[in-house]
Design a binder for these strands. Structure first.
Ligand SMILES: [Zn+2]
Length: 323
DNA sequence: CGCGTTTGACCGGCGC
DNA sequence: GCGCCGGTCAAACGCG
């Protein structure tokens, strides 16, 4: 509304100096935020995210939940240092955290099913990704979100989209339930729960690929924390090529991590600078602190990134990449 | 007219 | 069972 502009120039993918990151939504409902820094607390504060103790939950709880969930990746077997690391962030002790405090998860949020189980109540989280049958509910495909610094809301990504809805939602970057972060390849992992009441609503637009045979959807919203950042979330795979680019090729390989993030053939096209000569050259945006040195790219990605699977191979646990 | 957006109504899941 | 919520529908509208 209001300031809409049509899709146009792309923006730049956001980075922060020592904590380049991206987030990916995997599996049906949960959203996994992947951080490539070693201190999530640092990142969180950088973006001004709320970290009220009462909104956090213990790593232990989260681990148990996810463990039953078949994440596809290995959780730190030892709550050792790394986990403790999360300690400062969520002082709350493990067990009781979620147990009695309903306020935590309660209202809103977007991915429901997934967690929430926690608590002492024996509630094995079973929400295997696609297993849900039951008259065939909406089967969600893995979703991947990209954060891009841009003035335009709807970024050009080579495909044609038709807007089919718009809604004010409360949980900008954070899903009500779980935010898990993986530190580099260490699999250190910690999760937080956020009280959605603390989040300011953002306008989210829903788009669908205009190709009738294609079911890909995407949604666009602005980060409530940093309005200059657009969060574009894709769901599904295109069964066709882009309209503007040959072979779905991705241009602009210098676009920082986007290049890494986007396997040339990846269905999950990143909504960043395309070949449209942005005046705003694609530069990495740093949240604070300038930085110097080298181009961002993942701080410590595996030495050799598999090319074919691209980064998704890293981000998305094999088990979750069901089509 | 074709095509895409706008916008309130509607739906299904879930928590209370 | 009610109400909140995210997500979707679809009629009306805008525009080339
Ligand atoms: Zn498509």
């Amino acid at each position: 509304m209001g300031d809409n502009q049509k899709s146009d120039p792309g923006g730049t993918t956001v980075f922060s100096s020592d904590s380049s990151w991206t987030l990916a939504e995997t599996d049906t409902d949960s959203v996994n935020y992947l951080f490539t820094t070693d201190r999530d607390s640092c990142i969180l504060s950088e973006f001004g995210w709320n970290l009220n103790p009462q909104n956090t939950r213990s790593v232990a709880d989260e681990r148990s939940d996810f463990a039953g969930n078949d994440l596809g990746y290995t959780l730190p077997e030892t709550a050792s240092s790394a986990d403790l690391h999360a300690g400062p962030i969520n002082p709350v002790a493990s067990a009781d955290v979620s147990t009695s405090n309903p306020s935590v998860s309660s209202s809103s949020s977007e991915d429901q099913t997934t967690e929430k189980s926690t608590g002492s109540g024996v509630k094995p989280p079973e929400i295997p990704n696609k297993v849900r049958k039951k008259g065939q509910k909406r089967i969600r495909q893995p979703r991947f979100a990209f954060m891009t610094k841009s003035e335009v809301d709807h970024l050009e990504d080579g495909y044609r989209w038709r807007k089919y809805g718009q809604k004010a939602v409360k949980n900008s970057p954070f899903p009500r339930s779980v935010v898990s972060s993986l530190f580099k390849r260490k699999l250190t992992f910690s999760c937080f729960k956020f009280n959605t009441n603390l989040l300011s609503p953002v306008l989210r637009s829903y788009y669908r690929c205009t190709n009738s045979k294609c079911t890909v959807k995407k949604r666009v919203e602005r980060s409530s924390d940093d309005p200059t950042i657009v969060i574009t979330t894709y769901e599904g795979q295109h069964c066709h090529h882009t309209v503007g680019f040959p072979r779905g090729g991705v241009i602009n390989h210098e676009a920082g991590f986007a290049a890494h993030l986007t396997p040339a053939f990846s269905p999950y096209y990143y909504p960043a600078v395309q070949n449209q000569m942005p005046h705003e050259r694609p530069s990495i945006v740093r949240s604070h602190q300038d930085e110097a040195g080298e181009p961002p790219a993942f701080p410590d990605p595996t030495p050799q990134l598999p090319t074919d699977e691209g980064l998704l191979g890293d981000i998305v646990p094999p088990g979750m990449r069901n089509r």
